[in-house]
């Protein structure tokens, strides 16, 4: 398992260098929380690039939407080839224990790039 700091660095690098997000992320700007039970983090996206990853989330830190799931679910999603029902946020929400919360309109408005960015976890792994 990568350290949180090393993970944040590799996730930032992979996102900012990703061809698909680079080609289609001109308006991909939002902030979201990944709640992995053992660790929470907030990613701030600006025009298709990671602007900041907050690894020390405090009670009043703001974000627009959150994905929450137990650490094991995130580990499953972070496998290079995820097993069935760990292969995306919709699959994990319908058949596992991932929940989508907050302003889901923002998620839907950015669904293409966000879906691709979550798949980057298959390359970087997850920090839990």
């Amino acid at each position: 398992m990568p350290t949180p700091e090393a993970w944040a660095e590799s996730f930032t690098e992979a996102t900012n260098g990703d061809a698909e997000i680079g080609a289609h992320g001109k308006y991909y700007s939002c902030s979201y929380m990944l709640d992995m039970q053992e660790r929470k983090l907030i990613v701030d996206m600006h025009r298709g690039r990671v602007e900041n990853i907050n690894l020390d989330v405090q009670p009043l830190d703001a974000y627009e939407f959150a994905l929450r799931a137990p650490a094991d679910t995130w580990r499953g999603m972070g496998e290079p080839v995820p097993k069935p029902m760990y292969h995306g946020i919709w699959a994990a929400a319908f058949r596992k224990n991932l929940s989508m919360e907050g302003d889901l309109l923002v998620l839907m408005q950015n669904l293409r790039c966000f879906t691709r960015q979550i798949e980057i976890l298959r390359e970087t792994g997850v920090p839990v």
Partner: peptide
């Protein structure tokens, strides 16, 4: 993209 996860990796 909402149906993307319906396909296998």
């Amino acid at each position: 993209s909402g149906t993307w996860d319906l396909m296998a990796p």
